[in-house]
Write a protein that binds this DNA or RNA. Structure first.
Length: 905
RNA sequence: GGGCGCAUAGCUCAGUUGGUUAGAGCGCUGCCCUCACAUGGCAGAGGUCAGAGGUUCAAGUCCUCUUGCGCCCACCA
């Protein structure tokens, strides 16, 4: 084993180990009634995706859970896959076409979709490869894609079921329209962004008078589609005008002045222009007051059906020109700066246009009911809990979901039209049709293509041109990936899944909708726990994103420091639900940790004498254990508990810290150093056993967080133990169990004293500049016989750890010595020739001051009757013990100070 | 307009139910290349826990308010 290099090389190990795992089928899980399942479905990354730091965090957490549960004996399944990401993917391919000077319409639908599939085959697996380099232990045999035949079938099935249940309808509504993507968007897909705009005041002349009515608008271009002006019915300023008509400037259309209670008297002028085809509020007004609907924009947001001067102008050019014209003609009033929230396309960031169009919707209220109840019943829990409120708030105020998209890449809506029958029904464009259920003659909704119109028998049917919102397939993911709608053994065994790990951004898009679909299709929650991790931000607090150029590329980090280091650092940075702030440098902590482990193992395996140790993994002979042996086992036991509980509670940072503290502080800093001494003292066999056991256990505890280095090292030490080859993967090793037999408070307390003595001596040597190569004798004095015995038992250890000559316990005290008092034990280093008395005097007097101050504090508390009468006994006892100890330490330290001062005279 | 989160060492952050002297990493200072590791070891400096009030024997931790940052939701055109 001496061939191990002094520095860990993660790259070689990680690539090799991952291949071995995957080839051996270690990630795979199949139904097994004898074992309990544990299931996670991956939030499917977009096929267009490349691994970013958010994926890295998200998937590291999932992998930690899966690996832990797998080691704990659960049948752990992690289902991977990708999302077809309708708009995003279409945009990518359209951009590619644009470089060739082509548009999708040049190709036609079929050829275009074919191109997208080709693109998907070529690039769509990039993200999955990258997830592998992250160490993700997914069952790759089960990789699914939202447009797989199986999942597409699930989509059609749900659509038809919703339709048959009266939960899907088609109608004319104002929806969010992205003029660039040229498609409808759901409300969630058009987030509002605070924008600095202008509020334009425009004067509308009143018919038959010289007066005018002033309205305020942020989108003056829509005035070309105005069909009324609305005021509040009780607004004194305008009461007389209600029922009269205004003349729409520039267009010269005669529009009524109407009264409606929804008008806010406080805002603007208190009079509002009504544009039913271009604003959701106005749309409602328009229907309520039976106004005309003027659609004045094309689908790419150019003006249409307007006076020639504005025809074909882009909406923003039209705005500028309108303002100029209004001003010239005296219709423009004040122009105020105005901050408002404007919807933007979540795919291309274009300002969305509220647009009246014919779309498909899902009625959400009925679906939301069980999804609300399950959370209120505590059967579905959010971690951290605060997201419960966010979820419920959205769920309880849910709006219908616009699911049709005017793009080509996606699941085509399984609805067919018989134009013959439809023509009898009139035009869909009639806004009064809005909200009417489908199921009208001439509309056939079906899982499979119908051959004839059931009403008239016509064989001429055309399928709806639109595709479904991407999330219409994602919301089925927890069961569609397991085979639904077929009743598969997988579905029966692995559903419902256990934990969903995701980011807050998609609680509404995805999490909430999955719960609804879970109940609708499976009558059961799709998962019981939702862990919401934080958003990864840079050190200035900005969200990391490619467009901001502030992102840390996880692949870059893997290249530089390795996957384990990346994972370790990500996890330590993520306190439950807190946002994660990262800088490049932080990853060196993870790298150093892996390297530390590597070297601790290197030390261990390089010890001679393993040939005498049979079965190091067999039970330890406890009679032979030294103080340090018992101590490290006790510490290990505590660490097992801490790490296990932390992972159970989704406190991954605490799990990481717990194992780090054990391995670095307890194991490397103390136990390994002590082991060197013990080995030299013919206690080699027991020491090697304890070393082996502690490291073996700790590696297993660390494995979910740092899978590669732990596998590598675990196998190395496994060779020492002659571990059977078939057990040679830590992935399937048993998760460490706590053993109360290892709890040893006596050893922990004695070790604590020993450590305090060692640190005190080192501190004295350091502060008093005792030369490194000198080995003065060490004197320990204590009135406590037990402590004295304990100290003498550790004589050789103390000598080695403190670089002392001889160690004298309760022997004659040296006349002139540097002194410290720890746990009631006087720790003395003779001054003769070594120590500068003046320095020691300063040091001691500082120490006296410090002790006196602490004592004063403790005594003040004890002098307080309220404290002594009300504090619980253990706290009171603690304070008293502290008082005694401080008094003792102070007395002894003062005595030495006096000695030194006497010497100085 | 509602709701949420954050504010602790120079920096980035832990601190789970209130309880002895508030921790870690990085950075900084001093000493050490000691035969696992300088990606390391030992020792050390550094904090009125954002501010004000309150509850309590006891508050970083609970309550109220204030300030500053960040986020989410909502049809003020």
């Amino acid at each position: 084993m001496s061939e191990l290099s002094a520095q860990y090389n993660p790259k070689e190990v990680e690539e090799r180990r991952y291949k071995q795992w995957e080839a051996a089928g270690t990630f795979n899980a199949d139904p097994d009634p004898s074992r309990e399942p544990y299931t996670i479905v991956i939030p499917p990354p977009n096929v267009t995706g490349i691994l970013h730091i958010g994926h890295a965090l998200n998937n590291t957490i999932q992998d930690i859970l899966i690996r832990t549960k797998r080691m704990q004996g659960k049948n752990a399944l992690w289902v991977p896959g990708t999302d077809h990401a309708g708009i995003a993917t279409q945009n990518v391919v359209e951009k590619k076409l644009a470089k060739e000077g082509k548009k999708r319409h040049d190709l036609g639908r079929e050829a275009f979709v074919k191109q997208v599939w080709e693109w998907k085959e070529q690039y769509g697996n990039t993200i999955l490869r990258q997830l592998r380099s992250l160490g993700s232990s997914c069952d790759w045999r089960r990789t699914r894609f939202t447009m797989d035949e199986g999942l597409s079938h699930a989509v059609r099935k749900v659509f038809v079921k919703l339709h048959d249940d009266g939960l899907i309808y088609r109608g004319n509504y104002i929806i969010n329209w992205c003029p660039r993507c040229q498609t409808a968007l759901s409300d969630e897909e058009a987030p509002r962004v605070q924008t600095q705009g202008k509020l334009f005041h425009i004067r509308y002349p009143i018919e038959g008078s010289d007066a005018h009515l002033e309205v305020a608008t942020t989108r003056p271009e829509t005035m070309l589609g105005d069909s009324a002006i609305a005021v509040h019915p009780e607004d004194e300023r305008y009461k007389d005008l209600i029922g009269k008509y205004a003349i729409l400037p520039l267009v010269k259309r005669r529009i009524p002045i109407i009264a409606d209670e929804d008008v806010d008297r406080e805002f603007g002028t208190g009079a509002v222009k009504v544009t039913p085809a271009h604003d959701p509020v106005d749309f409602v007004l328009g229907r309520r007051h039976k106004l005309d609907f003027y659609n004045v924009m094309t689908d790419d947001a150019h003006m249409t059906a307007v006076p020639a001067a504005y025809d074909k102008l882009d909406r923003f050019d039209a705005r500028s020109k309108l303002i100029r014209d209004l001003e010239e003609q005296g219709f423009l009033g004040a122009v105020d700066e105005h901050v408002h929230n404007v919807g933007h396309c979540y795919r291309c960031n274009t300002v969305v246009e509220p647009r009246l169009s014919l779309q498909w919707f899902v009625r959400m209220k009925p679906l939301a009911e069980p999804a609300i109840q399950v959370v209120k019943d505590g059967k579905l829990k959010f971690y951290p809990d605060r997201w419960t409120k966010v979820y419920l708030n959205w769920m309880e105020n849910i709006e219908d979901w616009c699911i049709s998209r005017q793009i080509w890449w996606g699941h085509r809506i399984p609805a067919w039209y018989c134009d013959k029958c439809l023509n009898l029904r009139g035009q869909w464009a009639d806004p009064t049709l809005a909200g009417k259920p489908t199921g009208l003659p001439g509309i056939i909704v079906s899982e499979v293509q119908p051959s004839n119109c059931p009403t008239c028998g016509s064989g001429v049917l055309r399928q709806d041109e639109d595709v479904l919102d991407t999330w219409f397939s994602s919301w089925l993911w927890p069961f569609s990936t397991l085979g639904w709608p077929a009743k598969t053994p997988d579905l029966d065994y692995f559903y419902p899944t256990n934990t969903l790990v995701t980011a807050q951004e998609i609680i509404f898009f995805w999490v909430a909708r999955m719960v609804m679909a879970g109940f609708y299709c499976m009558k059961e929650t799709p998962f019981t726990d939702v862990y919401i991790h934080g958003t990864v931000r840079d050190i200035t607090g900005k969200k990391m994103s490619k467009s901001l150029g502030n992102s840390i590329d996880p692949l870059d980090i893997i290249e530089k420091v390795g996957t384990d280091a990346l994972r370790y650092t990500l996890v330590t940075a993520t306190a439950i639900g807190q946002d994660v702030f990262l800088s490049d440098e932080r990853f060196t902590v993870g790298r150093n940790f892996a390297n530390k482990l590597w070297n601790a193992t290197r030390f261990m395996v390089s010890q001679p004498g393993w040939q005498f140790v049979k079965n190091p993994h067999s039970a330890l002979n406890r009679d032979r254990l030294s103080l340090a042996d018992r101590w490290i086992l006790s510490r290990l036991n505590k660490t097992i508990i801490r790490v296990t509980c932390a992972i159970d509670d989704y406190q991954f940072n605490d799990a990481a810290n717990g194992i780090y503290d054990f391995l670095w502080r307890d194991f490397c800093d103390w136990y390994v150093e002590i082991a060197k001494v013990q080995i030299s003292q013919e206690k080699a066999e027991t020491t090697l056993r304890v070393l082996w056991h502690a490291l073996d256990t700790a590696l297993r505890l660390l494995h979910p967080i740092m899978p590669f280095v732990t596998e590598e090292l675990w196998q190395r030490i496994g060779e020492l133990a002659g571990r059977p080859a078939e057990k040679q993967t830590i992935m399937r090793a048993a998760w460490p169990k706590q053993d109360s037999y290892d709890d040893d408070p006596v050893a922990e307390s004695e070790m604590d004293t020993l450590q305090a003595i060692v640190s005190a001596v080192r501190a004295m040597r350091s502060e008093l500049h005792v030369p490194a190569d000198s080995r003065p004798d060490l004197f320990l004095a204590t009135p406590d016989a037990q402590a004295a015995t304990a100290a003498s038992n550790q004589e050789s250890l103390l000598r080695a750890l403190t670089q002392s000559g001889k160690v004298h316990v309760d022997a004659q005290r040296p006349k002139d010595a540097a002194a410290a008092v720890v746990h009631g034990i006087e720790v003395l280093l003779p001054l003769a020739g070594l120590v500068d008395a003046a320095k020691e005097r300063v040091r001691l007097s500082q120490r006296v001051d410090q002790l006196a101050k602490q004592l004063a504090g403790t005594e003040a508390r004890l002098a307080n009757n309220e404290f002594t009468s009300k504090a619980p006994p253990e706290i009171l006892e603690g304070a008293k013990a502290q008082q005694r100890e401080l008094q003792d330490a102070l007395k002894k330290t003062r005595a030495y100070l006096a000695t030194i001062e006497a010497m100085a005279k």
